[in-house]
Design a protein around this nucleic acid. Structure first.
Length: 143
DNA sequence: AACGTACACTTAT
DNA sequence: ATAAGTGTACGTT
């Protein structure tokens, strides 16, 4: 199976996706890009027409992946809602710091909705830019 | 309100 | 094998 590389636009950003027909391998953001093939569900999500958690498989949730357990817990966060690092940590029987590390190393943002994980007191951080996180949360919470 | 420490885990030396 | 870093949380000052 060949890897497909494509991109679609979200807000003011481009979402680059490396994926096969069955699972997503890598998702990244940049300010410029070119239209290309992306999973239909992901495209719909970026367009704001898919109002639920992506059901795509990600390499991040494979059993062999380091933070698989954490990523699965993150996927459990319902669309439009958020959880704190502490919440996830409790679910995984781990510490908030491990969650932060897992999120920062998340190979597939969006597919694993790490943007729904926020700090207890506010937004928390995000790479490459918190504005993406904010835009995503805003989009999910708007009617 | 600010500071320090503890939490679990990964990556680099 | 050891040390330090990480998008935190909580208790104490």
């Amino acid at each position: 199976m060949a890897l497909i590389s494509g991109a679609c636009r979200f807000n003011l950003w481009w979402v680059h996706v490396d994926w096969s027909d069955t699972s997503v391998h890598r998702v990244s953001f940049s300010k410029s890009g070119e239209e290309g093939p992306v999973p239909p569900a992901l495209r719909a999500y970026c367009a704001g027409t898919l109002r639920e958690t992506l059901a795509l498989k990600s390499v991040a949730t494979e059993d062999t992946a380091p933070y698989a357990v954490v990523y699965r817990a993150v996927c459990r966060i319902p669309y439009g809602k958020t959880a704190t690092y502490g919440d996830i940590a409790m679910e995984c029987n781990t510490s908030p710091r491990a969650i932060g590390m897992a999120m920062s190393r998340n190979p597939t943002p969006l597919v694993v909705p790490c943007h729904r994980v926020v700090a207890k007191n506010g937004l928390g951080g995000y790479t490459p830019d918190v504005s993406i996180k904010h835009a995503l949360i805003t989009m999910e919470q708007k009617d």
